[in-house]
Design a protein around this nucleic acid. Structure first.
Lengths: 154, 154
DNA sequence: CTAAGGTAGGTGATGCGTCAACCAAAGCTC
DNA sequence: GAGCTTTGGTTGACGCATCACCTACCTTAG
């Protein structure tokens, strides 16, 4: 009875705390940098990256799946981005409900300017801290956790 | 010239992508769970954890430093938490500007109910996916990145 | 052909995070 | 003790994330 202990072991807790702290600081710093450097939010950035990587023009739902967001979040996001001129929405002739999301010239330019700067920060703050083996280990661990989560409810 | 390459190597990019993806999914799932299970936001949760661990009563700025947030964020946060009855604010007799933040009985109860459930989810989604060695490696890597970031501007 | 159910996408309310500006009390300095 | 800086903490505006719900269109069984 009571198979799972109530708390984590000290080593587990220490590992968890370090991971969470690192991840929060790193992601926070990077998203503040992209905002300061490019005037785009981190969400703008990632949507533009994925969209332009895929040719600069996609169906809304395909974009949702690619970025792995909820459609509501994406809808709000592209709404804001359209207002800022980074993307445009086009009707879909084949499907009356559908929409194409298209990167505007301004969107292309924004991401082409922002991407190398962002990569530099990723390298400076993260990659440079680690050896090749560290990086490989982290990739393996991340994929292991991802795979594990997929078999878990909720 | 041009000492740093414009992009990451394929292995670097793969590691970075896996890490970011894992971290987003994991943190997202955990914070949705704590919200669903306890009615508290993830921010409520962590503030209450740190506050009660420290005795349930602290100076505002000490709490800010403990949680490593900006004071503005904490100010908004404790404002909301006070409105929900999780904490209360008291004046500080020694320092006319100062405030004590105190966990209410409802706050104590909320965190005592929520904490074991949250830990179970952490274990289920994360700890159980990894070996002891994985966990140790991740802790080491996280601390290495944290230490590295401290020496970096911005 | 039509009704039922699924899919594409949007909306509005609410809470959260950040930024910049602000204010008042507390030292500090001459 | 008058002016300066620092510290402790708040505020308001704005963009972002989530939730629940909604509409329009498409698909398919009968």
């Amino acid at each position: 009875m009571d198979a799972t202990p109530r708390w984590l072991t000290p080593e587990q807790k220490a590992a968890w705390d370090s991971f969470i702290r690192m991840q929060e600081k790193l992601v926070g710093r990077l998203s503040r940098r992209v905002q300061a450097d490019s005037g785009m939010s981190a969400s703008d950035y990632i949507v533009l990256v994925k969209l332009t990587e895929a040719g600069g023009r996609m169906r809304f739902m395909d974009l949702v799946k690619l970025v792995e967001w909820e459609k509501s979040r994406m809808s709000h996001q592209v709404g804001r981005m359209a207002k800022r001129g980074l993307v445009a929405k086009e009707e879909c002739p084949d499907d009356g409900r559908g929409a194409f999301i298209v990167a505007t010239p301004a969107g292309h330019e924004a991401i082409e300017d922002a991407a190398p700067v962002h990569v530099d920060h990723v390298r400076r703050l993260f990659i440079d801290a680690l050896t090749q083996e560290d990086l490989a280990a982290l990739a393996r661990i991340s994929n292991r956790v991802l795979a594990h989560m997929e078999n878990q409810p909720d």
